[in-house]
Design a protein around this nucleic acid. Structure first.
Length: 305
DNA sequence: ATCCAGGAACTGT
DNA sequence: ACAGTTCATGGA
């Protein structure tokens, strides 16, 4: 992490290939998002670091991301943790030169990489949040997925109020592990999804599943296998979580409907491409499938904004 | 009303 | 290993 601690605020320095505004467009894709707010180019988010609740005001100035703390000043230890969160959230560890080099000569990606230059995968550093969000999103439209997430967070998460508005942190697996299926069905989770979410919360509480243990595995297939071993996690969810929480640039949620629609749009196809056709388009994406997917997703938000 | 949504588990072969 | 079925409900 490249950062400076100024005590009253922190400054995080992204690599050269970075465009804060592009990232904000992705973060602002849904008005139903409950885990952050964007106002006049500034991002507001509530973080929980161990037992400390930290409210952050995040903005970009010339060449750095500045994080201020409008409510209370965190300790030195907590400021560093906030910096690490920002570093992960914006996926700042990646060197994108390889991706852009590959994309330049790629039939599909060359159509969009210049347009979205500096966009990074907006990650979900909290593994539990990434897993739950993926499971919520399985087989339902995004609008309803956000509605379910909103109910879930407002029912089981913590919040603070700042200038008349509430800011939430995602519920912890400790809390969710104590629930029963009915508690989630009330929020209109299906029985299956309720079982999956609670099961994962229990696995994480008992440390059968940790982010650390997944990150320690070196091989992509080994991580994917470990994830798919968990009930509720199939190929799509495994790749989605590897992309959004584990910074695995080779992950490729190839069955993703959003990806299919994006390809259909950008290539002017009559029908959504088949998996086999996508594999052909992706022949040169090796090592960067996650970024290719994310850039194609970004295409879908141009219309709405 | 009809189709499908950022799938996965389960069942039968 | 693979195909078909079930789950289950809101949004466009």
């Amino acid at each position: 992490m490249n950062w400076i601690d100024h005590k009253t605020y922190i400054e995080v320095f992204p690599p050269k290939e970075f465009n804060f505004q592009e990232c904000l467009i992705f973060l602002g894709r849904s008005h139903q998002e409950i885990l952050h707010k964007i106002k006049e180019g500034t991002l507001y988010k509530l973080l929980k670091v161990e037992d400390a609740i930290i409210f952050c005001k995040i903005s970009y100035t010339s060449d750095s991301i500045r994080v201020k703390f409008p409510i209370s000043k965190p300790s030195s230890y907590h400021r560093e943790k906030v910096g690490e969160y920002i570093w992960e959230w914006f996926d700042l560890e990646q060197d994108l030169q390889g991706f852009y080099q590959m994309a330049e000569s790629d039939k599909v990606l060359n159509l969009i990489v210049d347009k979205y230059y500096g966009l990074r995968i907006m990650c979900i550093p909290d593994l539990f949040e990434a897993l739950v969000w993926a499971i919520i999103g399985q087989q339902i439209n995004l609008t309803f997925a956000y509605t379910l997430k909103e109910r879930f967070v407002e029912e089981f998460g913590e919040f603070i109020t700042f200038q008349g508005e509430n800011y939430w942190v995602f519920p912890s697996f400790e809390v969710i592990s104590t629930l029963n299926v009915e508690d989630l069905k009330k929020l209109q989770f299906t029985t299956r999804k309720a079982e999956y979410v609670i099961g994962i919360a229990k696995d994480m509480k008992s440390r059968i599943l940790t982010k650390k243990m997944l990150l320690e595995k070196q091989d992509y297939h080994e991580v994917k296998k470990a994830l798919m071993n968990i009930r509720g996690i199939g190929p799509w969810t495994a790749d989605y979580v590897m992309m959004k929480s584990l910074h695995e640039t080779s992950s490729f949620p190839i069955a993703d409907v959003g990806l299919h629609n994006a390809l259909k749009t950008i290539l002017g196809l009559k029908e959504k491409p088949t998996i086999e056709e996508i594999k052909e388009y992706a022949a040169n994406w090796e090592g960067w499938q996650a970024y290719a997917t994310f850039y194609l997703w970004r295409l879908l938000y141009d219309k709405e904004i």
